[in-house]
Amino acid sequence: MKVSMTVNGQQHTDDVEPRLLLAHYLRDVLGLKATNIGCDTTSCGACTVIVDGLSVKSCTVLAAQADGSQVTTLEGLAGPDGELHPMQKAFREEHGLQCGFCTPGMVMAAIGVLADNPDPSDREVREGLEGNLCRCTGYHNIVRAVRSAAQAGPAAGQVPQDQEVAR
């Protein structure tokens, strides 16, 4: 079947099997390999991307279900000049990543947390990230990164497409 969607601001149309998972569409068809797959059961959140302004686990969404959507992955966050998104910047400064495997999903989920609550407490960040597993950091610095990003203002809870819409 034919699916069309805008991924990181670029329009794509592809012929795919109905069962193709959005995560595999992004990785294997579009070659956007930042989005990782860490489990089979919608548990780990490594595959989190933003679809139409909401964080979702792309391993549990069919590409067909995302037909017509605006999708943002980790690759779509930094500015064209390479300037890091406030959440990316905060993850780096607070050492919120180690092996990096959960990171793309964690960063996207964290943007979702701030979209929902621009200035969360530690507890609220932890609850907001309950669907994203990390084995390396003990979450300590991830929580710090999200709270620090919140101080950067509303852009930390937005993806570039949102910002364009907002303008």
Partner: peptide
């Protein structure tokens, strides 16, 4: 229910 991503879907 679940986590935020699950509740979004």
């Amino acid at each position: 229910v679940g986590d935020p991503q699950v509740r979004h879907r």
